[in-house]
Structure formats: structure tokens, C-alpha cells
């Protein structure tokens, strides 16, 4: 099983590397994450910021298909005791949030996320689900959104975001990503 992430994509598929490390931490399977120093994995497909192969023979391109592939392969791990329908709205919101540069649009989405967490620790139920990872990835990918969360006007969301950052699989995901970025920079500066 493998995951491939385009390092220079917009948006970067942070949530997919979180899914992958979450699987690895569970011990259910091992997914190797590869990083490519490109804008898109397939120039003909503008959704191809990420690709996953969980069956050993078929690559799925794009965030939407990657989420579906993880959910299909590891339903219990990514849903816990919850219904697939309960994570779907958050997956959709995350997909809209990650690429948005519209301040009003971003603010509305952040308010919606923040309100949901007034009385809740996690987005769905009482254990981590794919909803949390999708939203976490969207915030990592969107500087405007992450910046607004840091300024403290969405303190429920900020609290949840800090919790997510302390969880091992996601810390590992970020670490691997940063290493890949640094390695690609180094390669460039030492080039001919």
C-alpha cells in the first residue's frame, strides 16, 4: 500500500498523510508515503495533488477519492462506532475549506466548525474519526484559516487543533512532510 503526495500542490494533501500515519499507528497495515517534488502527480488531472493505492493494483487520484478509498478499506478505524453519514458533512466542509482564499467564506466555515465544538471534544463521537483528520488537514493546508484559528477568535476550534497536533500519528505526518520539503530544497541548492 502506498500514498503519493505532490509537495508543491495547492492545496497540499495534509489530511491524506494523516490518514496514512493513522493506519500505520493502528498496526492494521503499513502504508508507505512518497513525496514528489511536483505541482500535480498527473498534469492532465488538476485534482491530482495526491494518489493512493490500497489494493496493490489501482491508484486513486485526488482528495475526494483518497478519502473514499481509506473509508472503504478501513471503515472501523476511521469511523469508530459512528455512521458514515455523520462524518460526511465534515469531509465536505474540509474539502471546501482547504483551497478557499475567500475571507468571508473561510470565516463562515471556521465559525461553523467552532460552534460545533462548543460542547464537543471531537467532531463526531468520542474517538478520532476521519472527520477530525480531514478538518485538521484542511487547516494545515490553508494559511489564512490556520492564521485565523491562531489569533484566538475561534477558541473551541483552536483547542481541538492543539489536541490534534499532540496526537502521535499527526505529529509524525507533519514531520515526514517537513523532512521531504527540506530534502527537496537541499537537492536543489546542491544541484549543478
Amino acid at each position: 500500500m502506498s500514498l503519493t503526495v505532490a509537495l508543491k500542490a495547492k492545496p497540499i494533501a495534509y489530511s491524506a498523510i494523516a490518514f496514512s500515519e493513522f493506519v500505520n499507528a493502528s498496526g492494521l497495515a503499513h502504508i508507505a508515503t512518497k513525496f514528489e517534488d511536483v505541482n500535480l502527480l498527473d498534469n492532465a488531472d488538476k485534482e491530482s495533488n495526491v494518489a493512493v493505492d490500497l489494493d496493490g493494483n489501482k491508484k486513486e487520484y485526488g482528495s475526494e477519492k483518497v478519502v473514499a478509498a481509506f473509508l472503504e478499506k478501513f471503515p472501523d478505524l476511521f469511523l469508530g462506532k459512528n455512521e458514515a453519514s455523520s462524518v460526511q458533512p465534515w469531509i465536505e466542509l474540509a474539502a471546501a475549506l482547504a483551497p478557499s482564499h475567500n475571507f468571508m467564506e473561510v470565516s463562515n466555515m471556521l465559525a461553523q466548525l467552532d460552534d460545533h465544538l462548543i460542547m464537543r471534544t471531537l467532531f463526531v463521537g468520542y474517538s478520532l474519526t476521519i472527520a477530525d483528520m480531514a478538518v485538521w488537514g484542511a487547516l494545515k493546508a490553508n494559511n489564512m484559516a490556520a492564521g485565523a484559528v491562531r489569533t484566538g477568535q475561534y477558541h473551541n476550534l483552536a483547542r481541538w487543533y492543539r489536541f490534534m497536533d499532540t496526537q502521535k500519528p499527526f505529529a509524525t505526518a507533519l514531520e515526514n512532510f517537513t523532512k521531504a520539503v527540506n530534502a527537496s530544497k537541499k537537492q536543489k541548492s546542491s544541484g549543478p
Binding site: T121, H155, R159, W160, R162, F163, D165, T166, Q167
Partner: peptide, 12 residues
Amino acid sequence: LMNTTFIAQDAG
């Protein structure tokens, strides 16, 4: 608890 998930820490 306004800014932390658990009483003494964020992590658990």
C-alpha cells in the same frame, strides 16, 4: 478547560 482538552494537558 477553555483552552485545553483535558484538565492538565492537551494530549490525553
